[in-house]
Each structure stands twice: as C-alpha cells, then as structure tokens.
Amino acid sequence: MDFVRRLYQRFESLVHELAKFGSIGAVAFVIDTGIYNLCLWLEWGPLTSKVVATTISATFAYVGNRFWTFRHRDQSGLRREYFLFFLLNGIALLFGMLTIGFTKYTLHLHDLLSLNIANIVGVGLGTLFRYWSYKKWVFLEATEPIPVELPETGVRQDR
C-alpha cells in the first residue's frame, strides 16, 4: 500500500491536471457534438458543421483550461495564449476534418451515425494532440511558485 501512496504522490499533480483537462474536454465534447449535429440538421454539410462546432467548443475549452485546468501555470499574455490555443485547435481540427471527410467522401457513408462516429474518432485524436501541445506551447510551466493564498496587504477590514 505504501508503494501506491508514493506512486500517487509522485504523479498527484499530473492526475489532477488530467482530471480537470478531461472534465473540460467532456463538456467541450458535448458542446461540439451538439452543435455539430444541429448544423447537420440544418443541412450545413459535415465539414462546415465541424468547423462551426469546433470554433464554439474550443472557445469554451480555452476559458475552462486557462482559468481552471492550467491556472497554476504562468500566464504569458491573453493574446499570445489565445492565438496559440486556436492555432493548435486548428491543427487538431484537421484530425476531425480528415476522419469526417474520409468517412463521407472515401467510404461514401453519409448517414448520421457514421458521421458521428467519424467525429468522435477525430475528437479523440485531436484531444491527444491538444493536451500535449497546450502543455508544451500555450500554458507554460510556472517559473516561480504561484502562491496558494493571496499575500497579506496590511489593510485591516473591520466588519
């Protein structure tokens, strides 16, 4: 049992970070899939639907990951992070576009189930790329420890 405790302590921050990333990702997945299917229902086409769905779900994911998952990491500027975040999401979008395009135009599967399975496969592949790339280029390691509590200001507040 001591081995398990030491192993957990060694990877505790990674486990928590992955749990938060997964939670944000799960909500973003629901947003993505819901909007993707809404756009398909509106007959926007599978690739256009994917771009619209990814843009909206990625915006949610940025806010969630910046202010919850990776809040302990340095903040290198909103413009820089937002630009890199969406650039990397654009690359990850290619995974979805390729799987959906392959399903529709190569396999000639046009039904809703096939397109949704292709979307799920693309989201899965894109998620692996996004987690790795966010840690590497967007949400950088903190150069100084970030305090858990705010420092005392010396100003007393009477109630």
Results as ranks from 00 to 15, higher is better:
4 V>E: 12
81 E>C: 05
100 I>F: 03
140 L>I: 04
44 W>Q: 05
127 T>A: 08
124 G>S: 02
99 T>F: 12
127 T>R: 02
58 A>E: 11
75 Q>K: 13
20 K>Q: 13
32 D>Q: 15
134 Y>I: 02
62 Y>F: 15
40 L>C: 14
81 E>F: 12
142 A>H: 08
46 P>Q: 03
68 W>G: 09
104 K>W: 08
109 L>Y: 05
117 I>F: 11
55 T>D: 04
134 Y>P: 04
117 I>N: 07
4 V>T: 13
16 H>Q: 05
16 H>T: 08
54 T>D: 12
107 L>M: 02
35 I>G: 12
27 V>K: 09
33 T>Q: 08
2 D>K: 14
111 D>K: 00
123 V>S: 06
79 R>A: 13
75 Q>T: 10
15 V>T: 05
20 K>A: 13
116 N>M: 07
127 T>E: 08
41 W>Q: 05
146 I>N: 05
33 T>G: 04
1 M>T: 10
70 F>N: 06
19 A>Q: 03
26 A>T: 15
90 G>S: 12
51 V>Y: 03
8 Y>T: 02
146 I>Y: 14
89 N>T: 10
146 I>K: 13
83 F>K: 13
117 I>W: 00
107 L>D: 00
122 G>M: 00
24 I>H: 11
42 L>I: 08
65 N>R: 06
145 P>D: 04
154 G>I: 02
83 F>N: 12
73 R>T: 09
60 F>K: 13
158 D>K: 01
38 L>A: 13
29 F>Y: 14
34 G>F: 02
121 V>D: 01
68 W>K: 03
27 V>H: 06
13 S>N: 12
36 Y>H: 07
18 L>K: 01
53 A>F: 00
141 E>H: 06
82 Y>V: 14
104 K>G: 06
127 T>P: 09
55 T>N: 08
31 I>E: 09
78 L>S: 12
58 A>F: 13
130 R>E: 04
87 L>H: 13
37 N>T: 06
22 G>N: 13
143 T>Y: 02
108 H>L: 14
19 A>R: 02
73 R>G: 11
134 Y>E: 01
127 T>K: 01
157 Q>D: 08
126 G>R: 03
11 F>Y: 14
113 L>V: 03
151 P>D: 11
13 S>C: 04
51 V>N: 00
33 T>A: 15
142 A>V: 07
5 R>S: 14
60 F>N: 13
149 E>A: 15
84 L>Y: 09
14 L>I: 04
140 L>Q: 03
50 K>Y: 12
48 T>F: 10
84 L>S: 02
15 V>C: 08
75 Q>D: 15
139 F>G: 01
48 T>K: 14
147 P>Y: 06
159 R>Q: 02
72 H>W: 04
118 A>Q: 02
118 A>T: 01
64 G>F: 11
6 R>H: 01
111 D>C: 00
92 A>I: 10
16 H>V: 05
65 N>A: 11
114 S>N: 06
149 E>T: 10
32 D>R: 05
57 S>F: 10
141 E>K: 06
102 F>R: 06
92 A>F: 09
71 R>K: 15
39 C>G: 11
74 D>C: 06
53 A>T: 06
51 V>P: 03
139 F>Y: 03
44 W>M: 15
15 V>L: 07
